[in-house]
């Protein structure tokens, strides 16, 4: 097991290296230049040149890349070209929000999706099942931004409510922090719940049709035991895959929801970075997100073998 984890960790290196090279090249290929964007109509050739010089954009590409990556190795992600602020502390700061929001949203989604999915599977083809499937289809189909905007509009118009403005961290003021994150978490959670519910349902249905379930039922084990002990545990692997992917995506920042609810998360940072062609920010954040993504995948793989002892990596 440990060797497996070590081997996987070792494999991170080429993956992440590939990501940095790719992002670096893409940032250099796309049109647009940070000096021109910052200066706008104030741009004179001399000013632009001076800024490009200051930002090190006149160096050969390999040297720019080397300057950046050699800093990363010693934990220095550089400073934002646009604001001059150091990138790493900023990223960690934002990750704490994104992480919290992800967990919050995931819990909401599990609380909705798993019981509903089980119910739909057990009551297969009844009105209840059809109802649940319809709702889950809605959840999959309604885009985040539409749901978020609708919620904001409805809450502010009819209930005169808007989440408190000005983000504060959980450690600073837990109550306020949770109140700020509640609505965004509901938006994310419900949209995650849709596909998760469908996966739970189909996966349980598949298991319920198998021989060992019939055997268990024939033995006279109560329906509850059959469902929760035998069926659920066996059905959980595909569900876990979906959960892992969803969490991986969410941890990478939820650009639209962050923007709508003015949350200073990772997604906003990436987006502003791209819009302003602030390449150290884009590279740093993408590297960070990629690291999170592969780590989550690794954790999911490890969880498989825990939940299903037949899966072994040794």
């Amino acid at each position: 097991m440990y060797t497996y984890i070590l081997r996987r960790l070792f494999l991170f290196i080429p993956v992440l290296f590939g990501v940095t090279v790719f992002v670096f090249l893409v940032m250099n290929i796309i049109p647009g230049d940070i000096a021109s964007i910052i200066l706008g109509t104030e741009a004179t050739p001399e000013l632009k040149e001076q800024l490009r010089q200051e930002f090190g954009l006149n160096l050969p590409l390999y040297q720019q890349y080397w300057n950046w990556i050699s800093g990363v190795f010693v934990g220095d992600f550089g400073n934002s070209l646009r604001t001059g602020a150091p990138i790493l502390p900023e990223m960690l700061n934002r990750f704490s929000l994104t992480f919290e929001l992800t967990i919050f949203a995931a819990i909401i989604s599990w609380m909705i999706a798993i019981p509903m999915g089980i119910l739909a599977a057990v009551k297969r083809n009844t009105k209840g099942d059809i109802g649940i499937r319809f709702v889950s289809l809605l959840g999959v189909s309604i885009p985040n931004f539409a749901l978020a905007t609708l919620l904001i509009l409805i809450l502010s118009l009819f209930f005169n409510y808007y989440p408190p403005v000005g983000y504060v961290g959980f450690l600073e003021d837990p109550r306020r922090n949770l109140e700020i994150l509640l609505i965004p978490a509901i938006v994310l959670g419900t949209s995650m719940a849709g596909s998760l519910m469908r996966m739970t349902r189909s996966s349980i249905l598949e298991i319920l049709g198998q021989d060992f379930i019939r055997t268990a039922q024939a033995k006279g084990i109560s329906q509850k035991m059959v469902l929760f002990k035998h069926a659920l545990r066996n059905a959980i692997i595909p569900v876990l895959t979906i959960i892992g992917m969803q969490i991986g995506y969410l941890l990478g920042g939820t650009i639209i929801v962050e923007q709508i609810f003015s949350l200073p998360g990772l997604g906003q940072m990436v987006l502003t970075g791209i819009n302003q062609r602030d390449f150290p920010v884009v590279q740093g954040t993408i590297l960070f997100i990629a690291t999170i993504f592969v780590t989550v995948n690794l954790i999911v793989d490890i969880l498989y073998s825990y939940l299903d002892p037949r899966i072994s990596y040794d």
Partner: peptide, 14 residues
């Protein structure tokens, strides 16, 4: 900082 206009409107309204 509130980039989204519907949020700014909701916040000033409430």
């Amino acid at each position: 900082t509130m980039i989204d206009e519907s949020s700014r409107i909701a916040a000033v309204r409430t």
